[in-house]
């Protein structure tokens, strides 16, 4: 069964800003689904609609078999939501916050403790501390406990790892994997492309439109260009030189490397490219073919949409 079905959802702000345009996708029960895209793509608008906080202008949404708009009161009992901004009570203690959310859902902390125990154990030593005085990572863990305390069937997480350092990000994703094993469907948004590979399926979103939905592996397989990686002594001089490259290609820095995707027959294009680099006096390391990452795919898809 589909846990969530979103059909042609549109939302316009102030009559001019098209925040969401014909958004259509489905999430299966028990799936860890990622919404991947930059700030301003429409992710938070979509989350606010899916969590019954905002009405869409048009479209149909079914959640666990219920109509999102007509049955919004029932829907609220079944979902958990971790918004993009810290939304706990800073002047209540850690324990009081958790109690509060449990009571609001007519439950108590003990009832679903088994679900949150692995996370709760990490913040329990601070249970008397005011939530406002916690570090960023701890706040996030408490917020996750509060979103889970009524054992929702679907959990919505809006950018839980934005601005979070790589070590804490890794920890957070490990927690998400354990939540998934509890049979809870998870919709999570992120601007970090590397996190996309940790999802069962992802939707790439930009400017209110979904650019593609698939498993991360399949998105990578559908990369259209032929991708190469190489090092250069001076990457910014290289990028400048590549502006004059006569071949159909797309190039950009990628960490210490330069990535270049060709849209050519490589048998003839590669010798031409090597000659071009030589003419430009560009020193470079070995030019190796490489499997694209989700970030490479996102860049390709966005550039193609720009040209359309």
């Amino acid at each position: 069964m589909e846990a969530l079905s979103v059909q042609k959802v549109n939302k316009v702000y102030d009559k001019t800003v098209q925040a969401l345009q014909d958004i259509t996708f489905e999430i299966r029960e028990g799936e860890l689904f990622g919404l991947v895209g930059p700030d301003g793509a429409g992710k938070s608008t979509l989350f606010n609609i899916l969590t019954t906080l905002l009405l869409p202008d048009s479209g149909e949404i079914r959640i666990l078999g219920m109509d999102l708009i007509n049955d919004y009161k029932l829907v609220r009992q079944e979902i958990g939501y971790l918004p993009g901004t810290f939304s706990l009570y800073p002047d209540l203690s850690v324990k009081e916050n958790l109690d509060f959310f449990a009571v609001m859902y007519k439950s108590n902390i003990e009832e679903n403790m088994d679900l949150i125990r692995p996370i709760w154990r990490q913040i329990e030593p601070f249970s008397k501390r005011k939530a406002g005085k916690l570090s960023g990572g701890m706040k996030q863990k408490l917020a996750l406990c509060c979103a889970l305390i009524h054992r929702p069937r679907i959990l919505f997480l809006d950018e839980p790892t934005t601005g979070v350092d790589p070590v804490s990000r890794k920890e957070f994703w490990e927690i998400l994997q354990t939540i998934k094993t509890q049979g809870i469907t998870v919709l999570v948004s992120t601007p970090y492309m590397d996190e996309a590979t940790l999802c069962d399926r992802i939707a790439l979103i930009q400017n209110g439109k979904i650019l593609g939905i698939d498993t991360p592996q399949s998105i990578i397989q559908h990369f259209k260009g032929t991708l190469y990686t190489f090092r250069s002594a001076d990457i910014f001089s290289l990028l400048k030189a590549l502006e004059d490259c006569p071949l159909q290609c797309n190039y950009y820095p990628y960490g210490e490397y330069c990535h270049i995707a060709f849209y050519e027959d490589m048998e003839t294009a590669m010798p031409q490219f090597l000659q071009f680099l030589e003419e430009q006096g560009q020193e470079h390391g070995e030019i190796k073919p490489i499997q694209p990452s989700i970030e490479d795919c996102f860049i390709e898809i966005v550039k193609m949409h720009r040209h359309e």
Binding site: G37, T162, Y252
Partner: peptide
């Protein structure tokens, strides 16, 4: 954190400005 939440293409354009 000048590029927090920014898309991969703009992130690279921003670094070009930094350079």
């Amino acid at each position: 954190e000048p590029t927090s939440g920014v898309d991969p293409i703009v992130r690279r354009e921003f670094w070009n400005l930094i350079y």
